[in-house]
């Protein structure tokens, strides 16, 4: 499926990233000082222990500035389609989810002869586009499943209002309803979908502590997906 064209809306963040990428040491230090504490705190709030959070953020900075010869640095993949902080938090949270899943996997499955206890195999693989695509898929599936639980008429109405920007008055006219009935139907559907999405994520990753706004931030940060 073709991805939509990049439409940077956070020019200031994008310019800042460009300065960091032109090997501007001061800008790189500023990047770390601006976001390090915040990302560690958010990862802890979302279910990491302090050591995991510090390790993940250390890896994140390392990957932001360095890459194998034939690849972009992690920071080079930021396209300004969301705020830099949201994007960094999204990347870090995806890595946290990946790490926790790998921990679970290691408990459940005995090590193979190829040495899966190796240190380098234990840290999340930042270069693994496939694992991040899986997490993006998880977000999409949580949304899709929550929509599937609602009646299809509510979902159609939501889509017309939120994706295509039709007004509630226009919906009311087509449906033959009073505008207040449309408003109530939309609100009930939105509340139920938000509740279902969070419970679905909790079911899949019980350790993950996400509020609705956190989930949205992850979705928005995934606009620059496959970082």
């Amino acid at each position: 499926m073709a991805q939509p064209q990049a439409t940077p809306t956070h020019e200031q963040d994008l310019n800042f990233v460009q300065r960091v990428l032109t090997v501007n040491g001061a800008a790189a230090a500023e990047l770390r000082s601006r976001y390090h504490g915040r990302i560690v705190a958010v990862l802890c709030a979302r279910g990491a222990n302090p050591t995991e959070a510090e390790d993940l953020v250390a890896d994140l900075w390392s990957d932001c500035f360095a890459a194998p010869p034939d690849r972009k640095t992690l920071l080079g993949k930021y396209q300004g389609r969301c705020a830099l902080e949201s994007w960094l938090l999204t990347v870090a949270t995806h890595r946290l989810v990946d790490l926790k899943r790998r921990q679970t996997f290691r408990v459940d499955v005995p090590p193979s002869e190829r040495g899966s206890d190796d240190f380098f195999d234990r840290r999340p693989h930042p270069e693994s586009v496939a694992s991040e695509a899986r997490l993006l898929k998880l977000l999409r599936e949580a949304i899709r499943n929550a929509f599937a639980k609602r009646d299809s008429e509510s979902v159609l109405m939501l889509k017309l209002v939120h994706l295509h920007q039709l007004t509630q008055r226009e919906i009311a006219r087509m449906w033959g309803w009073h505008e207040s009935k449309v408003s109530r139907a939309l609100e009930v559907a939105r509340q139920n979908i938000a509740r279902d999405i969070l419970s679905e994520l909790k079911r899949i990753d019980p350790w993950l502590e996400l509020r609705w706004e956190d989930f949205l931030e992850l979705c928005a940060g995934s606009a620059d997906a496959l970082f």
Partner: peptide, 19 residues
């Protein structure tokens, strides 16, 4: 919550416009 759902739909249906 209104704009929230725009984000959800865009994540879900980002690539359907051409079709």
């Amino acid at each position: 919550m209104n704009d929230d759902f725009q984000i959800l739909f865009e994540l879900l249906e980002g690539g359907v416009q051409e079709v």
